[in-house]
Simulated assay, not measured.
Amino acid sequence: MKYLLVLAVVFVAIWLWRKSRRDEMRSRPPPPRATPAVGAPQAMVRCAHCGLHLPAADAISGPDGAVYCSAAHRQAGSG
């Protein structure tokens, strides 16, 4: 009989603990959703010397209007 009483007390304690956790979770505001840190799309250009595609903002323009991926390729393409 005393084991039944101990078992009942344990079940009541577990029930009260779970109930308080459930109430705590409901009262807590939901975490903010993380927005992806993705920038706006950029125009891509092709290097006139090696064919590498790179963002237009990183490209180096040559004297003839062609774009290059580096100063070395601009010199190689001009000469």
Results as ranks from 00 to 15, higher is better:
Ile14Asp: 07
Tyr68Arg: 02
Trp15His: 04
Tyr3Ala: 14
Leu52Glu: 03
Val12Pro: 00
Arg46Asp: 06
Arg26Ala: 09
Arg21Ala: 06
Leu54Pro: 03
Cys47Met: 03
Val38Asn: 07
Val38Glu: 11
Ala43Gln: 12
Lys2Met: 14
Ile14Gln: 13
Gly65His: 09
Leu52Gly: 01
Trp15Thr: 07
Cys50Ala: 07
Ala8Pro: 06
Ser27Leu: 14
Trp15Asp: 11
His73Ala: 05
Phe11Lys: 00
Pro32Thr: 02
Val9Phe: 03
Thr35Gly: 08
Trp17Lys: 03
Arg18Trp: 12
Arg28His: 01
Tyr3Asp: 14
Ser70Ile: 01
Gly51Leu: 04
Val67His: 08
Met1Gly: 14
Arg28Asp: 00
Ala13Asn: 03
Val67Thr: 13
Tyr68Ser: 02
Ser20Gly: 08
Arg26Met: 03
Glu24Met: 08
Tyr68Pro: 00
Gln42Trp: 04
Val45Trp: 02
Pro41Val: 04
Pro32Gly: 05
Pro32Ala: 12
Cys69Thr: 04
Arg28Thr: 01
Met44Leu: 05
Leu4Cys: 10
Pro41Asn: 06
Arg22Asp: 03
Pro31Met: 05
Met1Lys: 15
Ala56Lys: 14
Pro63Arg: 11
Pro55His: 08
Ser27Phe: 11
Val6His: 09
Ala13Phe: 10
Ser78Met: 15
Pro36Arg: 14
Pro29Ala: 00
Val45Gln: 04
Lys19Asp: 01
Val67Gly: 00
Ala8Thr: 10
Leu4Asp: 11
Val38Trp: 03
Val9Cys: 09
Tyr3Arg: 15
Trp17Asn: 12
Ala8Gly: 09
Ile60Arg: 12
Val6Glu: 11
Val10Glu: 10
Ser78Cys: 13
Lys19Glu: 05
Gln42Ser: 09
Arg74Leu: 14
Ala40Asn: 13
Val12Met: 10
Gly65Pro: 06
Val9Leu: 11
Ser61Ala: 15
Met44Asn: 09
Arg22Ser: 08
Leu52Ala: 06
Ala71Leu: 13
Leu7Arg: 10
Asp64Ala: 15
Gln75Ile: 11
Leu54Thr: 01
Arg21Leu: 05
Pro30Phe: 00
Ala48Pro: 00
Lys19Trp: 07
Ile60Asp: 14
